[in-house]
Amino acid sequence: MKKYIVLLRGINVSGRNKLPMADLRDLLNDLGFKNVQTYIQSGNIILEAGEGKSVICNKIKEGIQTKFGYDVPVIARTIPEWKKAIVKYPFSTENEKIVAFVFLNKKVYETKIEVKGINNDQYLIDNDMVYIYCETGFGKTKLSNNLFERKLNVTATSRNYNTTLKLLELAESPS
Rank of each mutant, 00 (worst) to 15 (best):
V154S: 03
K67N: 04
D71C: 09
D23Y: 14
I75S: 01
L152T: 10
G137N: 13
M21H: 11
K112D: 11
G69E: 14
N58C: 12
R77F: 10
C134N: 12
E94L: 14
C57T: 05
F33Q: 02
E114S: 13
D71W: 07
N44H: 14
A22K: 15
N119H: 13
K53G: 05
G15W: 09
T155A: 13
K112F: 10
V13Y: 09
N105T: 11
I86Y: 07
T164C: 07
G69R: 15
P20H: 14
K107Y: 05
Q122C: 12
K84D: 10
Q65S: 15
I125Q: 01
E51H: 12
N127H: 13
P20S: 12
Y131W: 11
I118S: 04
K97N: 09
I132W: 02
K88I: 04
T38F: 15
I11A: 05
M21A: 10
Y4G: 01
I98Y: 01
N153S: 13
K3T: 14
N160P: 09
T164H: 01
I11T: 10
I5H: 00
K3C: 10
G137F: 04
V102C: 06
D23K: 15
P90S: 05
I60M: 07
Y131R: 04
A100E: 02
I125A: 06
K97H: 06
I5L: 05
N160M: 06
L152S: 08
N95E: 15
Y133I: 00
A100I: 03
K59A: 03
L27T: 05
F91L: 07
L152G: 05
E114Y: 13
I75T: 09
R25G: 02
E62W: 06
K140V: 08
Y4C: 04
G139V: 00
P174M: 14
E51D: 13
A49W: 09
A22Y: 15
M129S: 04
G117F: 12
A49M: 08
K107R: 09
K18H: 06
G69S: 10
F148W: 03
I5V: 15
R16F: 09
N160L: 06
K83D: 10
M129F: 08
I132T: 06
L152F: 08
